[in-house]
Simulated assay, not measured.
Amino acid sequence: MKERWLPVGLVAGGLFLVNVIARLVVRFGAGSDDGKQITIGLWALFAVGAVMIPVAFWYGRRTQMIRVVGELGLAVVVACLLAVLIGPFVSGVGPFSNGVGLVFRQFFYFVGLSAIGAVVGLLLLMTTGLDYRSQSWKRYIERSGTKPRKIVRR
């Protein structure tokens, strides 16, 4: 159980940590300049997508694709809920202080850019032929490509 869900929790925690760091940079570095706040927020979302590229690459080498999609999807949704509902407290405001519409936009931006990063990582993995299915096909071809021993009749 630990081997399956620990990586999911670590991915969710890492994505949430990226969001918290960005919120702290906005709080202490940008001040009240809206332009800087938006720029830092966009860079943070791109960083979340960039983090998903190697995570998806690493995760896709280990397990089947259906498990990768399910477990990374769960990790992204958990991290997104943490970032949207708990993250604003790091900035010094409440999660719904700017309206429900902003919460939904943050949720969809976070999930969307995470999904794009994961897809890019998985496409790189499949292109290099290092994914789980390509490796199993390679092992099958190597194993079945050898001719069996001929039985000698006397």
Rank of each mutant, 00 (worst) to 15 (best):
I151E: 14
K138C: 05
V76N: 00
G129M: 09
L123A: 09
R67H: 06
V119G: 01
L6I: 13
V69L: 15
I40T: 11
G29C: 10
L102N: 09
S97H: 08
A44D: 08
K150D: 10
A83V: 06
L102D: 09
R139I: 04
L42P: 05
V11T: 15
V55H: 03
V152W: 14
A44L: 05
T39S: 14
L125D: 00
G129D: 15
Y140Q: 13
G60M: 02
F89L: 14
I141P: 00
L72I: 03
V111E: 00
G35F: 05
P148R: 13
L122H: 01
P95K: 07
W5M: 09
A47L: 14
S97P: 03
R143V: 07
L10C: 13
E142W: 07
L123S: 06
S134H: 14
W137Q: 10
L123I: 06
S134I: 00
I66L: 14
I151V: 12
G73H: 04
F16G: 00
F46Q: 05
I116W: 01
L102F: 07
R149S: 09
R4N: 07
L17K: 04
R61G: 12
L17R: 00
K138R: 14
A30C: 12
G9N: 07
G117N: 02
I38G: 02
G101P: 11
A56F: 08
Q37E: 10
L82D: 05
V84M: 08
A47E: 04
K2L: 12
D131W: 00
N98C: 05
I21S: 09
I86C: 05
R133N: 07
L45C: 04
R61E: 12
G41P: 00
A56H: 04
F107P: 03
G129V: 07
I66Y: 02
A79H: 04
Y59P: 00
T127S: 12
G112W: 04
R62N: 11
E142L: 11
G13S: 13
G70P: 00
T63H: 08
M1L: 09
V111M: 05
V152G: 07
V25M: 11
V51H: 03
M65L: 15
Y132I: 01
L10W: 12
F28S: 12
S32Y: 13
Y109G: 04
L45P: 01
A50I: 10
